[in-house]
């Protein structure tokens, strides 16, 4: 059944998503800074240095100036949206060397009509909801926010946090296209 296969793929991605997660995420933040979409300081604030040796877990986040729970990255120079804020979180299990949970979330308002929206890619640390179809382990929330309708939870293929961030950035700036149709992998003979 496709939904159970998806669960297996998501669980397999936990191992693929563990090593170098902060470096891969940092590369994307650096790309955003290079393109003028955020301050360069956020490259130096994306950190995996919150390591709890007792629980053997590591938290990856944008370290806040004051807040212990992390800050968003205010995005810049995106003419279609207002006040865009990007949150990046990952939680690593250093004992079993796997990714426990991640969230890549954008909150903003459309510039044209000021309607707020959220796009949030989330990998759950545990099964939630009634089943693998209605609440896939890796899914994307899309809606006004997390609490108001319309609110949809879309299933996603087995993406790592940085691949999810690639997808999210590409929705905002097409220049960030990690898999252009012109790449050799997509070249096909004419029919």
């Amino acid at each position: 059944m496709i939904w159970r296969e998806l669960v297996d793929q998501h669980d397999a991605a936990r191992e693929r998503g563990y090593p170098k997660v902060e470096m891969e995420l940092r590369k994307r933040v650096a790309w955003l800074a290079e393109r003028g979409h955020c301050s360069r300081v956020y490259q130096g604030r994306l950190s995996d240095k919150t390591k709890d040796k007792r629980s053997r877990r590591t938290q990856v986040m944008i370290k806040g100036e004051q807040s212990p729970i992390g800050d968003p990255i205010p995005l810049l120079n995106l003419p279609n949206v207002e006040h865009p804020k990007l949150w990046i979180y990952a939680l690593l299990d250093d004992h079993d060397k796997r990714l426990l949970k991640f969230t890549v979330r954008l909150d903003a308002r459309w510039a044209a009509d000021k309607v707020p929206f959220t796009i949030s890619v989330e990998l759950d640390d545990r099964t939630m909801g009634s089943g693998a179809c209605g609440h896939p382990i890796l899914h994307c929330h899309m809606g006004v926010d997390h609490d108001r309708r319309p609110q949809f939870r879309l299933p996603l293929p087995a993406l790592t946090p940085w691949e999810a961030l690639d997808w999210l950035i590409t929705q905002l700036d097409e220049a960030h296209e990690p898999a252009p149709w012109t790449a050799p992998m997509f070249s096909r003979a004419a029919p």
Binding site: T50, D52, W87, H146
Partner: peptide
Amino acid sequence: DGSPESLGLTYRALL
């Protein structure tokens, strides 16, 4: 709730 504050606290609680 689904606020960013709740999200950040959930990650810290799981840590």
